[in-house]
Nucleic acid binder design. Sequence first.
RNA 1: GGUGUCGUAGCCAAGUGGUUAGGCAACGGUCUGCAAAACCGUGAACGCCGGUUCGAGUCCGGCCGACACCUCCA
Length: 488
Amino acid sequence: MTIKLYNSLSKKVEQFKPLKGNEVRMYSCGPTVYNYAHIGNMRAFLFADFLQRVLRTVGKYEMRWVMNITDIDDKTIRDSSIGSKEWKSEMGEQTESAKDNLKKLTSFYEKSFIDDITKLGINPKHFFAMPKATDYIKEMQELILNIIENGYAYIADGSVYFDVNAWRKDDKYGKLYKIDFDNFKSGYRIDSDQYEREQASDFVLWKEFKENEPYWDFEIAGKNYPGRPGWHIECSAMEYVLLELPFDIHTGGVDLKFPHHEDEIAQSKAGYGIEPTAFWCHNEFLEVEKRKMSKSFGNFFTLRDLIKQGLDPIDIRLAMLSAHYASKYNFTFKGVAAAHKARVRVQEYIYYVWELAKGKVSNDFSGKVEELRNKVFAELADDLHTPRALAAMFSFLNDAQSNNLSVNEAQQMLGFLTEMNDIFAAWQISEEKAKPQSAPQDIIDIANERLEAKKNKDFARADALRSKLSELGYLVKDSKDGYELIKN
RNA sequence: GGUGUCGUAGCCAAGUGGUUAGGCAACGGUCUGCAAAACCGUGAACGCCGGUUCGAGUCCGGCCGACACCUCCA
């Protein structure tokens, strides 16, 4: 099925087609690993994941998906510096080497990042690569040299800057974001950065080494400029190496349009002569209580915070997917609870269908299952319209669950649900399994006592124990000859 | 100041001028010893004021409000 995507470059929904063969080469701006990722970050990664899953399952494409790990920047340096309050014992001992310390801190958060996204239903095996910036210093330097050679960069105070004015004479700067060069908000024009750049809009390609910071040697025209790469250059270099230019899709949060992606376009073209990608796809922000997430508003959550509070990450995944990626998503606990109930409902239906189909899967779609599948896939193919795709699914559940599926239809349904789950990654395609009792022993004791009372038809006693369990926060769900405890 | 986005029922969230979006919650009912789950059913909405139109949540104008970006930011 042909997929349509909104392209931030043309500001239109366009038909998608890979540039080369059946393979989609996609680059996603990944995390800067200086701390645990928060749920706002997660929305961006979830969007990229969802997109690549739709391309695989609905588009039937091969994926070559790259997500970078930024392991060198101001924050990683700050937090790994000697005596940093952000240092954790799990990272190991700090040493005299700034590079060592940087590596220890960033590896720690890289692991936690992969851990987090895995919990969110992202399959690390789907990545072609997760390159780290510090592994591509040489390639970045080569790119910078190209840019200098082509006349679009200058050296000032030991740093290398991209010369936006020179570039603007030859190409447009502001392809993704309409820039009013005369109206940069005053006060932001010269930031806290002490480096000397000629123009506020110029950006750093290579930052001069500062004392006690990690650095790499960089020889330009016979002279060494020890320092480290600027933020934007890493993506340009890694894309070039791992995907070749131009590739198909570049994803990231809207906030990265400017300056990060704008600069990336300029750099790549100035250095390699080619713009990076055919499609730029940006997800909107997640807000909490209709505000940007921020520590000062007290609405800042990492995934770990929420898991600690007892939320299921897959419910968070589904909750985020209930809004279209290009519109703001208002994160609320109620919303996650609603997603949970909706998810369980589909899960119950899967068990029901499994039972009917006896676990047999058919991919030979026809009739009502084919109709549903076409509808859901068409919505997903239309710029990943998850809300409408889910609505189609639930409408079917509302209309057709009581319509008896034939055994053959149930097998098709199981086939479709499997595909659906390849995309949403929110369910178990399996028969219903008895869940292990996870309640504390004293709770189980009461529940067993109630079961006894129930068997003896002492319903007054059984009900009293039910209310007692309810007070203790557990719901008893009776089954044929047992029960299940559900924590409220 | 510049650039955008958005205001839809208790909450979340679609909506491409013309028949019910959908989810969660709520309220009836079936089932169950009672519950839970599931299923059947019910109601409720388009920030305000004008305009265009046979017809506007959907187009135009104004107002009010919320949010984001403008070189740390997913």
